[in-house]
Design a protein around this nucleic acid. Structure first.
Lengths: 190, 190, 190, 190
DNA sequence: AATGAATGAGGATTCATTCAT
DNA sequence: GATGAATGAATCCTCATTCAT
């Protein structure tokens, strides 16, 4: 019997390498060769396990979103009140990991690719729906317009993230504060 | 005898062609060859006038932002009250032209490129600063926190645009309404 | 304990798979991976039993010629007169099996490969000699020039086959009739 | 103005190089790189002028058929009687150039490719139709069955060529004689 | 001013084959 | 006997860029 069970190991390694390479290059211009090299294997093996560059990329994006989702869920678990749940969603969106180079790169990749790549678009929409649904669920006990406010907050979070991640005109911290203030404003409304 | 004054004509043609190509491809995968062909000249000439692909792209981005800026300024001119000025800024951000394929493509390009390309980043920051400054200027007579509210609105606009442009989970129209409602909310606050 | 007698089973399976794959692809562009998969084993095992792709192909060609040979012999057995023997040779050459996709593919492969592959050439020559020898043997009681006529008929059969197999400008049936008419003509000669 | 008119030169060079490479390799396994190198240019240029490997190959095949066609036409021009025309067609089919390595390779390529490549098939059919039509035209004054006899002779020519070209069991000369004898036989028939 | 010509460098992908288990 | 693992080498193709005219 041959060496067994390498597939998950290799796939994981490739996904990690993709994320790392994405971060170090800071752009989408990452070749399968670079990824494979970083993952310690031949390009042929990378293709063998993923079928193609697109799928490697997709797997990397999925991983990043999965990690983010885990963080979000942990925050929600710790929160005991509806308000605390909303706050935790905002804080997860501006955590340090969200601003690591690879995560920023990945998000920008996702935005750029979503225009042409069906799967990427689906992935992005999944995230967007989840954020909004989490927010509206948290806001339901607190306002008469949970849906509308969730939409506002979700968009605000994305916009603040974009500005903080790319232009540094605002620090992540300031972005988080702005989001929290808007949350308060939305809830105070009579 | 050489034709005189060709430079601005050629440059304009190339910029227009870049924007058009960006729109039709819906992605950054546009080659100099395609651009030059659409502009009715050789790739060599395109290089001659711009020096390289990056600079052609940059010029195209600049043009798009310039066009957007013009639209914004026209809206501001027509507005007679501070509130109307703020509304016009929002409306300009969700106008039809902003959602044309080429503009969406251009914005995503800008976000993606801003990570690695210094000039692209500068351009993006320029837009961001201008939007915020326009907003805060409009809000100044209306609120005690023009800066903070401008920041909030600017980010919200970007986030709503992103969602409306990419995922169609929201229509441009709904995005505009959300922004306007938030504007009202911010101004109603005592 | 090792399974015994697997070798012939595996080899047969691979040969059949090769022929099938040749047919479904309709060309020589068949990979060892595809063959092995169809045969239900790993590529490594295919190599283990055959040593290399060339030998797998060769074995497949041999099998096809062997099958054809069997058909020919059965036809000859059923024929009771010299003329009937000649007719049966012609009919075997234009039987349905000869025009099945895999057989056509195999013949073209053989012709193409014969230029560079010694074994393939030998195989082709074997077939050609056998056809001519079968024909001349059948014609011997019927004509003064069995060798010459056999050569003519053999070439005619190959040429008609080629035309019918590839271009469909002629149906297999028409090809057979043409060959039979020429046979008659050759025998009528005084 | 740039260096002009290179296109036909380059295309010709590539076609010649393809034919030469086909001959020296004796098989279809010829890469664009090898062809380009032999033609003294980069692979990129080869692609530039032809668009792809298939089209380079196709152009080479066309050239070979064109050359053959020219030879045929010259033979026909010199022939003064119908019989002489038929003879000249046969002789053109077994001329020395037809048996040069590159021509043989090209024919085998054509047969093999015709199965999958639409254009190659069309080319082959073109040749087959032309040969038959030339033959039937020549035979018309000489027999009551020009069509049938043309078909027989065309197929016989192809079959004899195949045997002479590949297996050397027969010399080109013997093949020609066999074809001529069959021609006589077909015309003597009452 | 303008361009056809030309290429080097690289990139995704494929595949026959080998090896350790 | 059997196979998953792994790869080197090759192939087609693309593209930004340069150059001579």
């Amino acid at each position: 019997m041959p060496k067994l069970g390498m597939e998950p190991i290799r796939r994981t390694a490739l996904v990690q390498a993709t994320i790392a390479e994405l971060a170090s290059k800071g752009s989408l211009d990452v070749t399968v060769g670079q990824i494979a090299k970083r993952a310690g294997m031949s390009t042929a093996l990378a293709h063998h396990y993923f079928g193609g560059k697109d799928q490697i990329f997709l797997a990397a994006m999925r991983q990043i979103l999965r990690d983010f989702g885990t963080e979000v869920r942990q925050g929600l678990t710790r929160a005991t009140t509806p308000k605390a749940r909303a706050v935790s969603l905002i804080e997860a969106s501006f955590s340090d990991t969200c601003f690591s180079p690879q995560t920023v790169s990945a998000w920008m990749t996702l935005y750029a690719q979503a225009q042409t790549n069906r799967e990427m678009l689906r992935l992005l929409q999944l995230y967007q729906r989840r954020l909004k649904s989490n927010l509206s669920h948290a806001l339901r006990p607190l306002t008469d317009h949970p849906e509308a406010h969730a939409e506002t907050l979700a968009a605000l979070i994305d916009g603040l993230y974009l500005r903080a991640a790319l232009s540094r005109s605002q620090s992540p911290d300031a972005a988080r504060r702005t989001a929290l203030q808007t949350l308060n404003l939305l809830l105070e409304e009579r």
